[in-house]
Write a protein that binds this DNA or RNA. Structure first.
Length: 602
RNA sequence: CGGGACGUGGCGCAGCCUGGUAGCGCACCUGCUUUGGGAGCAGGGGGUCGCGAGUUCAAAUCUCGCCGUCCCGACCA
């Protein structure tokens, strides 16, 4: 068998009893994993749209609505319609197989959760958390993730002999998102495959983590997704390491830095890179004042002095932790990355107000610099070498030749700038580019935060009580489905990878061509179905154009056309959705030809 | 939470400025013709114009309030 792996169990030669799904009183073909079916468009609820829905902009959002895969119930709330659920189940099955493959055990935890568990971990007050009460006023939450619940269960683990464990489930999550967007890409309710590992120590966690990374790569590979495994910020959860699986697409919410040579990929929140080198003006032995009337922007300054904007520095006064005014200093052409600066400051910050700036610097924004002031300076790494033109802290003036270490002493030199396209890869010297991507999965070394908070401990060989070392891992199957659509579509609709397509083959019977053509279409569809494929037979009384358009929209990997022409020479037309290649084959060899073509399509 | 836009049959929209019969295209139902890339003709069904107040003889239209939706940003275990 050269079909995708999860389908061997459904092949006709497996000897299973075959039922037929459609039509009362008839039989449906049932297999262990999922059914291959013979679906009839005349009876299948596939509400395709002829026009673009006004509310949908992202390609996956637009196409899932137009192909009849999803319908909205409210902001960030979607129903998967029959065809949408079929694709979703394909992805779910792939995930389940790979999780089982690394020895993970499937469980199912409730959505409704006693508030105590969340109070115990200090997460009860998260703004995204839906809170509610029962009739006796007992507080509950709708789980937005299941660390609390799973750790509650891990309290039953007592001995090192019971470790390691890996548990997973496909569970609903509820999140009061500030802004749901783009169809399935960011929603308020969704099913997450979340898994949790329990180990004795960091080494065990490292192993579990690596196993998950392997499984995740296989999952996304099988789904036909282009993705990058990138280091990510451990965020508010703390923890000792994390990666995200990022699928590049125009609708992506995160920016990634990618090396042209493929040896570096990171979320810009944590990306490190080297800036391109400026062309410096003649160096000075000491800072030298220059009049720059009205030049309060880097562009204006650079053109007035006729210098490379990269040879300037830019000052951003902020009020950091402890209400202290701090000067963040970066190169003129760079942008401060807020999260990085926040990490360097050790807490949140806000831009300083105009009055605060004037009081501390004696000058206004646009003329600020690091010299002659009594303020803590955080300088970006890019300013370490070279002489830069900096603000003089005197309106209308700048300084030539300002050098870190010689002319001012930064309290801290740190990477606080946004990586940008054109930066140099620290690994290989290649060129980096920035691309948007959507996060389809993440893996996270939690450590002992939850086990300590909830008292999930075990006794080691020496009888010492230790907290269980945990990891958590998530994949959103519906978001993955949306990401697949983002990456696999054209002007006419979705071009599904075969492993996740809602149906394998669509058979179009053209027009009211008469009973003979209909019979031929039925016969071909039955043959192909019997060969182990899910078939959608378009037996509707519709115009050819509409049937072709719907077929393109839904995007089954292979389309078969049966029409008048077929009667003449007993032939049918096979067309690959993604390639558009069409071939004419004898109708009697349909099943055989489809199997052959199937092996070739992606 | 800040900024912007929108809410009128299932879908896409016009009408609103300048108050007076709720309209168009698609879809839907019936009949006839048609059928290899979203048909034609004829007939037909379907709308508390988001909700609530107010102004007015009269409100889809003007005023105020609320709700909802989308987009940008902030945020995002």
């Amino acid at each position: 068998m050269d079909r995708s792996w999860n389908e061997t169990a459904e092949a006709p030669e497996d000897g299973q009893v075959s039922y037929r799904a459609h039509g009362r009183g008839r039989s449906a073909r049932v297999a262990l994993n999922h059914m291959t079916q013979m679906l009839r468009a005349s009876r299948y609820f596939l509400p395709t749209l002829r026009e673009n829905p006004a509310e949908a902009e992202a390609p996956s959002h637009r196409l899932s609505l137009r192909a009849g895969l999803i319908r909205s119930v409210g902001s960030g709330l979607y129903t998967l319609m029959p065809a949408g659920l079929r694709a979703y189940r394909k992805i779910e099955n792939i995930i389940r197989e790979e999780m089982d493959g690394i020895g993970a055990q499937e469980i199912l935890m409730p959505l409704l959760t006693p508030a105590e568990l969340w109070q115990a971990t200090g997460r009860y007050d998260l703004p995204e958390l839906f809170r509610l009460s029962d009739r006796n006023d007992r507080p509950f939450v709708l789980a937005m993730t299941h660390e609390e619940t799973v750790t509650h269960h891990a309290r039953e683990i007592n001995s090192y002999r019971q470790l390691p464990q890996t548990w997973y489930h496909f569970g609903l999550k509820e999140r009061d998102e500030p802004r749901p967007r783009a169809g399935l890409l960011r929603v308020r309710e969704f099913t997450l495959k979340d898994s949790y590992t329990f180990d004795r120590d960091q080494a065990g966690l490292d192993e579990a983590y690596a196993a998950h990374a392997g499984a995740y790569r296989r999952i996304f590979d099988r789904c036909g997704l282009e993705y990058y495994e990138v280091e990510s910020d451990v965020g508010l959860m703390g923890g000792t390491g994390a990666h995200e699986y990022m699928a590049p697409c125009t609708s992506g919410e995160n920016d990634m830095a990618l090396c042209e040579n493929g040896d570096y990929a990171a979320n810009v929140d944590v990306a490190t890179s080297l800036p391109t080198s400026p062309t410096f003006p003649a160096s000075r032995t000491a800072p030298e004042e220059v009049e720059t009337p009205g030049a309060t922007t880097i562009d204006a300054l650079a053109s007035m002095l006729d210098i490379d904007p990269r040879a300037t520095s830019k000052a951003m006064p902020v009020v950091g932790p402890g209400d202290e005014v701090v000067l963040a200093l970066i190169r003129g052409d760079h942008r401060v990355h807020e999260l990085k600066l926040q990490r360097a400051l050790g807490g949140g910050f806000r831009p300083a107000h105009d009055e605060e700036i004037h009081e501390v610097f004696g000058a206004d924004g646009g003329s600020l610099g690091p010299i002659g002031i009594d303020v803590k300076i955080i300088a970006d790494e890019a300013l370490q070498t070279g002489q830069f033109v900096a603000g003089a802290n005197r309106n209308g003036f700048h300084l030539w030749g300002v050098e870190a270490g010689r002319d001012y002493q930064p309290a801290l030199v740190a990477d606080i700038r946004e990586a940008e396209t054109g930066d140099i890869c620290t690994h290989c010297g290649g060129s980096l580019r920035i691309e948007p991507a959507i996060e389809v999965g993440n893996i996270f070394k939690l450590g002992t935060r939850y086990s300590e908070a909830l008292g999930a401990t075990y006794l080691d060989e020496s009888g010492t009580e230790r907290p269980i070392v945990m990891g958590s891992y998530g994949i959103g199957p519906a978001r993955t489905m949306a990401a697949v659509i983002e990456q696999h579509h054209d002007d006419n609709g979705i071009t599904w990878p075969k492993a996740v397509a809602p149906v394998d083959v669509q058979v179009i019977v053209l027009g009211a061509a008469g009973q003979e053509v209909i019979d031929m279409g039925e016969s071909v569809a039955n043959d192909v179905h019997a060969a182990g494929f899910t078939v959608l037979l378009d037996d509707r009384d519709q115009r050819p154009g509409e049937k072709f358009a719907d077929a393109d929209m839904l995007g089954a990997p292979i389309r078969i056309t049966v029409g008048k022409k077929s009667l003449a020479d007993e032939s049918i037309d096979l067309r690959g959705r993604a390639t558009g290649e069409e071939t004419r084959v004898p109708a009697t060899s349909a099943a055989e030809e489809i199997s052959r073509l199937w092996a070739a399509v992606k």
